[in-house]
Amino acid sequence: MSYPVWTVPVAAVVLMSFTATAAVLDAVLDSARRGGGWRERVGRPVWEAARLLRQRRRTTVAPDALLWRLGTSGPLVVALLMAVVIPLGGRAVTDPVVGVVWFNAFDVALWLLWWCAGWGANSVYGLVGGYRFVAQALAYELPLMFALTAPAVAAGSLRLSEVVAAQDRVWFVVWAPVAFLVFLLAVTGFSVWGPLSYPAGWDVAAGVLAEPSGVDRLLLLTGRYALLAAGAGMATALFLGGGAGPLLPGWLWSGLKILAVLAVLVAMRRRLPILRADRVMKRAWLVLLPLTLVQLLVVSVLTYGGS
């Protein structure tokens, strides 16, 4: 079921609330500031945003301005486009027949966008960061695609409302735990976050984040949190039964589950060191990919074996 067109801005507001929550969560979990109380931390995203709004928009010498702007604003746009198909309490802004593919198509678009964000600045560090993203994407994208396939196969549909409805008895996370974990890892991958923030590595002066400043940087950083939020929303719909739950209304259940997943994603940042693409590529292709394929087989047998 879909809402009318005017709900598009509402969906955007909802996504941005989750985005802000992610930023606040990250600040709260930061252990770096000694003696900083709760108020010190909760307000941090506000101060960071104020700082970037006030900062001048710097460029570099001979940048590729068009691609650079595309790269810095793109991740936020992609997150918003992902959000329109994510159901909240059983209903989304739109519910296309190919909802799962819609999500997948936009996460692939991020290959180009992150690369542009690095390339456009005409700086060595940005360029290295952009190519690091491509290398990293080669490692996570195929496992992600098979992880997305698992719930679609189990539900026998690519329409998200039907995927959610198919989980009325058992959530797909029970049948497909590997796919769920791979999906979460891939979300941090396309959000350039935590263990998969190799493209924004400190060793190359923050890589894709090395050159953007002012409002460009604000858009890019907001886009990063928004991607995490959209990923958490999708994980809830695909694996955690969407708005299913006792007593509380569906939209509230969806919201709570999204928050829980988001908290896990944000917390991953401080738990692990960066997984460098050159080191994890082999593991991604030789371990993760076969695992997701076996997972897909298990789901297929469970779904169609009985009938």
Partner: peptide, 11 residues
Amino acid sequence: VGAVVTASPAD
């Protein structure tokens, strides 16, 4: 002072 060390001049 609540400052954070950054890696690049742009930031």
